[in-house]
C-alpha cells in the first residue's frame, strides 16, 4: 500500500495537497478581523452588498454614517477602489455596520417605509452639488420635481445643468432621492442606476 503511494505520476503541483484556500477558516477569520478592526477604530469604511428589486446594491459606511450606495452598473469593485482612494484604504467587508441601512432599504422596497432615518456621511459630495443633494429629501415620497425646480430651490434657478450633474453624481442614490428629479417635459430623464431602475423606484412610490 505504501509503495503504491510513494510512486507518483504526472506534474502535480508542489504542495498541491494543501488547500489553496481554507474557505471556512477564512470566513471565520474575516468576521473576527472585521469585529476587531471595528472595536479598534480601524474600520474606516465598512461595506456589504444586498439584493434589491433594482439589482444588487453596495452599501458603505464610515464611522459617521452611510457614505456610499452604488448600483451594480457603477461596478462595485471600482466603487470600492474609489472609496479606498477618497476616504481611506482601510476598507473591509463588514456587514454589521450596515445592518440599519439594509433594514431600512428592505422596508422601503417592501413599501413599508417612505423616508430614511439614517446617519449620512456626505463627504463624497462637495460645494453646489452637496447643496443640491441636501435639498432633495424635501421632495417627498411619491412626488417628483424637475431639475429646474431643484436648481431654483437651491437658489440658482439657472443652474439646471449643475443640478442634473449633482443628481448624476449622487453618492447615496435611493437614500438621497435623486430618482424623484425628472425632466421638465415630463419624461423620466437619466439616472445613476439606469432609467429602468428610476422607473422601478417611482412606480414603487406610486409616482409613475
Amino acid at each position: 500500500m505504501t509503495t503504491a503511494r510513494t510512486t507518483w505520476t504526472g506534474d502535480g503541483d508542489l504542495f498541491a495537497a494543501l488547500p489553496e484556500v481554507d474557505e471556512a477558516a477564512q470566513r471565520q477569520l474575516h468576521a473576527r478581523l472585521a469585529a476587531a478592526a471595528g472595536a479598534a477604530g480601524l474600520l474606516d469604511v465598512a461595506y456589504r452588498t444586498m439584493d434589491t428589486p433594482v439589482g444588487p446594491l453596495l452599501l458603505a459606511a464610515t464611522e459617521q454614517g452611510l457614505v456610499r450606495v452604488a448600483y451594480a452598473r457603477e461596478d462595485h469593485e471600482r466603487v470600492l477602489e474609489q472609496l479606498a482612494h477618497r476616504v481611506s484604504p482601510r476598507v473591509l467587508r463588514a456587514p454589521a455596520r450596515l445592518d440599519g441601512a439594509a433594514r431600512e432599504l428592505e422596508e422601503y422596497f417592501a413599501g413599508r417605509r417612505s423616508r430614511f432615518d439614517l446617519p449620512l456621511d456626505l463627504q463624497l459630495s462637495h460645494g453646489f452639488r452637496r447643496t443640491i443633494l441636501a435639498r432633495l429629501p424635501e421632495i417627498g415620497y411619491g412626488q417628483t420635481a424637475s431639475y429646474a425646480a431643484v436648481a431654483a430651490a437651491a437658489g440658482h434657478p439657472k443652474a439646471v445643468r449643475a443640478a442634473a450633474t449633482a443628481c448624476a453624481t449622487n453618492p447615496l442614490p435611493v437614500i438621497v432621492p435623486c430618482h424623484r428629479v425628472v425632466r421638465s417635459d415630463g419624461t423620466i430623464g437619466q439616472y445613476i442606476g439606469g432609467a429602468e431602475a428610476k422607473r422601478t423606484l417611482l412606480t414603487l412610490e406610486g409616482a409613475a
Binding site: E20, D22, A25, Q26, L80, L83, H85, P89
Partner: peptide, 21 residues
C-alpha cells in the same frame, strides 16, 4: 501611497490564505 492602494479587503482576500498557511 494613499492614491494607489487597493481596499484592504483585497489584501485580505488575496493574501489571507497564504498567511494562514
Amino acid at each position: 501611497p494613499s492614491m494607489s492602494q487597493p481596499p484592504f479587503e483585497a489584501i485580505v482576500a488575496k493574501h489571507g490564505p497564504m498567511v494562514l498557511r
